[in-house]
Design a protein around this nucleic acid. Structure first.
Lengths: 146, 146
DNA sequence: GGTTAATATATTGTGCACAATTTAATTGTC
DNA sequence: GACAATTAAATTGTGCACAATATATTAACC
């Protein structure tokens, strides 16, 4: 087997599929005026509000270079507030505004809509997700050990 | 199940894993002074040289807005040439230079190195790849039908 | 054959990613 | 308590992605 063929690499389908799936989200997220990474941040905050920038980065595997400008844009849209932690002025607390909380109601249908647009059933989705998650945990674990 | 939890979405592991795997490539590709998308273009050209920009975009699912500047950077590195097709001046032919062809020798070990750094065996890699590819084909097919 | 439509690439603008560095605050050590 | 080391976020710079538009060439049609 020629390992250098595009089709024989694991990386390409991962890269391309990720972009294609993001593209499926785009029209749905447009209605909420969110980009895909912004949506991930909102998902996290809807789950548990009042997180430090660092905590968000830990979950999404993103650094402040990506998050700071992204969070400023969410702040401009009045979906979140950014306030320095009085107990430790180095940290910035991200908190949902009323509008940010309310937006969740418009987002609840997105996962189902997306699954349908991918024409996957529940079992397939869970299978693939678990497989990807396992690999992801494996990678992030070994990375942090080093 | 709360579908809005980050961990219950298919999108996130796909997005995060794709970035993590790209991060594994980075130190290997640094030696070739290539970015990951540039590497994908080179893979394609090592496979079959003399492609139009549009053909490259078709394979990688990228448009000219992404490819044109990327290809100009590869041209600056003297790895490829960009020449208008005399038979149809709208098209631009991308051709490997001598240096571009030679670079392949430095790239042959990358797939094996990557697979090892992901600590996956051959069978796991093939399985996941096939699963991702199937889904990718499914998505790109339905997209083009619409 | 002149005009319209379609096609291929380029350009512009916005928003990530991420490396590298900077700034500011806190902690640890003496 | 002074000072070095560490930590959290911000800043800077480069390179994608991708939407929208522009430009230039070719094809299609009357």
């Amino acid at each position: 087997m020629n390992k250098l063929l595009l089709d024989n690499q694991l990386c390409f389908p991962l890269y391309a599929l990720s972009r294609q799936v993001t593209a499926l989200y785009r029209p749905l997220l447009e209605k909420l005026e969110l980009t895909y990474p912004q949506y991930l941040v909102m998902l996290l905050l809807w789950e548990t509000d009042n997180r430090f920038v660092g905590e968000i980065g830990e979950h999404l595997l993103l650094d402040s270079g990506t998050l700071t400008p992204l969070l400023k844009r969410l702040e401009q849209k009045q979906l979140i507030t950014r306030t320095r932690n009085p107990a430790d002025e180095r940290q910035v607390t991200i908190q949902l505004t009323e509008a940010g909380q309310t937006l969740k109601n418009q987002a609840v249908d997105i996962p189902a809509q997306l699954q349908e647009s991918m024409s996957l059933d529940d079992q397939q989705t869970v299978n693939l997700r678990v497989q990807l998650m396992t690999l992801l945990n494996q990678l992030t674990k070994t990375e942090t050990i080093i």
